[in-house]
Design a protein around this nucleic acid. Structure first.
Lengths: 200, 200, 200, 200
DNA sequence: CATGAATGAGATTTCATTCAT
DNA sequence: GATGAATGAAATCTCATTCAT
């Protein structure tokens, strides 16, 4: 059945992510995935004919909500304020990640998959897309006179994106022993304050 | 002779780094290292009895100047200003990296080596040490009334460290097609301006 | 299928024994076992995930009938005479070995596997168990006034067990050019006569 | 210098024996021997051009006193009694072994070296020689009316030789936790009593 | 007299993948 | 819709041995 097949594929993908998260990229073998799912190795290959297809699906899963989050943020930027839009964008990710810490293992996808061209390319696209999204939201905020206009949009985007990535890494390295969401949102608020026009 | 042996070990380490950089962590095999150096595989094992020892040496190499840079920065913080100290700290890394882009592959060391406990631990230590160094420099700057005191030192350190990491990643993903040094120093200047007390 | 898998494992074990027998312990490589069975090396590892597991199975095979032979001997000791029991015990082994000379290579298992702790331990257990079995049979014979009671049971057991081992070694070294069974049984008869009470 | 060279060779041989004894035949590598002696691997090869030459020397060392012991036993058989000769023969070995337990690892030489033709042959020769020596001593004792004449000399020799081997193995397996000498001599006495003519 | 440097061959083991059922 | 059986290729690592110095 279509549905169950999709379901099985999803399980394989989730297991792969768990493995990357728990034991690192080198620990992900078809054998180990099969073992975890109580399946045979050959069954895995019914769903994904190449191991790299699993990783491609992992990257799709990693970026599943990217478009949605961006679109909704854009709408927010129109309906409410562009500052809220940026905050909403960040919050979407960190709320999601807080409930699914394993997925943060993929923040480093580009380096993990380096040298495997299809995967490297896809990881790169995701990275650059997200950066572009943030840049666009900041551009709007600058246009709306919310964020300072005398600083290059690109650099501001780099800062925000870096903070996001950097805190995810720290969260992982520190074994998830603080609230990614609170820390990130607090930091972004401070950053926004520093780079916004004073409202006095 | 001592020297030549050290030299050979260094070559192996440099080759391993080049391989991680060029083709990703999974491409680093003792065979490939040997091939590149025109040696036999068994010779590699005369210098490093376990493959992971090569990676451990890679991590040492990656963090080789960490203490020096930090110490010199501290001195700067005393002799000249604490702002200069921070700038010097960042500049040391990005100048070095600009001339040795391959080494930036290791910014992600923690995730690359996840699950290989000795390596994971070492990578973690390097990450946290650097973060602590930055935090110390910022603390001094706050004490000296240079950086705003009403913001948590930790968060400011996270920002700076994240910017450093984030730009390295972007540099790699964009194929080194901009000057890491200029971009980073520019960004750090802007950041410092935003989080310093206005001098008017 | 269960059966065929068990069968395959058995074949691997038998091949390993043949190799120890023919060319010595150092000649047993997974490659050679595979070659003999017309399999690939990786297939061997589907059945035994570590090479030492093959050797463990070899030891199991070597001691497969130990309990049965001992139990049956004990019954004999009760039903018929305790002298018959001892003779039956020895005859069981030498009859079996006469038809399967290769297995005698394992009489030396302890020394062959020395230093490989799981194997060394198992080999030791088999040795001591057999010795204990013989001792028990002799004890019964002494109790039944068949074997002289003024000699330590342990020493008598050592003698019988040693004769068994010693003749196996001689048989191997002399290239199986005499009947292990006849020679051993003859010797044991003489030994029993010498250490039994004279019936006159 | 000749002397020192002989001395070094001896050390290599002794180290090889210690290794067989402690960690088993598979643990004997030129590397490990060199390590133990604080030499380089290449130096080992100055003294023994092939590794198997070391093992050959080991076998020579193992059988070093065989001729002497046999010759002296023969003389004893002439001067004193043939019973004393047999006891002297056994005692020579077990006294030596008691002070040098490591050497007993080679009792199994034939199986350890099986498949390495020069070594296998040499081990076999030693085994058969010793057996022949014992047989000769027993033959003399039978001729002298000390040991029963109605039993095949060969079988009696097998018994004695087996007891010797069997107790060495037991001694090893039981971790040298009894006196090989006392146990063996006691057993041989009992055996002699059983197979000698009653002196009444 | 000893050693450092190097290596080819081979051992064990893992892995992704195929195929017949 | 799933699995058991099998495998070639490659990875890490060990070993005996050579050679120049």
């Amino acid at each position: 059945m279509e549905l169950s097949s999709v379901h099985k594929k999803a399980n394989i993908v989730l297991t792969a992510i768990d493995l990357i998260h728990e034991f690192g990229i080198h620990s992900v073998s078809t054998k180990e995935i099969a073992r975890r799912l109580g399946l045979s190795e050959s069954t895995i290959f019914k769903y994904f004919s190449k191991k790299n297809h699993i990783f491609l699906a992992v990257l799709e899963h990693f970026s599943l909500y990217d478009q949605d989050i961006f679109r909704t943020s854009l709408e927010k930027a129109k309906k409410s304020t562009s500052r809220e839009a940026i905050l909403f964008y960040m919050d979407s990710y960190v709320s999601y990640y807080e409930n699914y810490p394993q997925i943060t293992a993929l923040i480093q996808a580009y380096e993990l998959f380096r040298g495997i061209s299809e995967l490297e390319t896809r990881a790169k696209d995701i990275f650059l897309n997200r950066l572009a999204h943030i840049q666009e939201l900041i551009r709007i905020a600058q246009e709306a006179n919310v964020i300072k206009q005398d600083i290059s949009t690109e650099i501001l985007a780099d800062m925000v994106h870096s903070i996001f990535i950097g805190l995810c890494l720290k969260w992982r390295i520190k074994n998830f022993n603080f609230s990614l969401r609170k820390e990130t949102m607090h930091t972004i608020h401070l950053w926004l304050d520093a780079f916004s026009y004073k409202k006095d």
